[in-house]
């Protein structure tokens, strides 16, 4: 699998992969919000697909969103308490915590935080 420079840059920057939060009210669904934060650019598809190829048991937006939220210690109902900016910060903290704890996943050769890999898969 080959990747474009844009994809490499997107993957490298981690948190900036998440879309800049806007001022609009967060959508109610967890999947939609997480997807929007993960910015489903074409470049992200390849890594998301690579992750799902390795972890087919996690396929499906609802399953992936549930796993991400569980990693954050949140239920779907808790999301309303977070605007996009604070949710993005929470995800960034979790991504760093994943790295610190060695919770990494390989997608297309990239060593990603597990939460990060799930967000990319969610963006597929």
């Amino acid at each position: 699998m080959r990747f474009s420079r844009r994809l490499l840059l997107a993957a490298a920057t981690g948190l900036p992969l998440l879309a800049a939060p806007g001022r609009a009210a967060p959508p109610p669904e967890a999947v939609g919000r997480l997807r929007r934060l993960a910015r489903p650019a074409p470049s992200a598809r390849a890594l998301g697909l690579a992750y799902l190829a390795r972890r087919p048991d996690e396929a499906g937006p609802a399953r992936l969103a549930a796993l991400v939220l569980a990693a954050l210690g949140l239920g779907e109902a808790d999301l309303a308490a977070f605007d996009d900016r604070s949710l993005a910060a929470l995800l960034a903290d979790r991504i760093r915590a994943d790295f610190a704890a060695g919770r990494m996943e390989s997608a297309g050769g990239w060593m990603l935080a597990r939460t990060e890999a799930r967000l990319l898969a969610l963006a597929v």
Binding site: F99, G102, M111
Partner: peptide, 24 residues
């Protein structure tokens, strides 16, 4: 390299990709 990727990610420095047969 996984150990390095771990530190690069934890510190927000960047991401690492292994160059393998699978990645061309």
């Amino acid at each position: 390299h996984e150990l390095l990727a771990q530190e690069l990610g934890r510190l927000g420095i960047g991401r690492l990709r292994m160059n393998t047969r699978e990645t061309g």
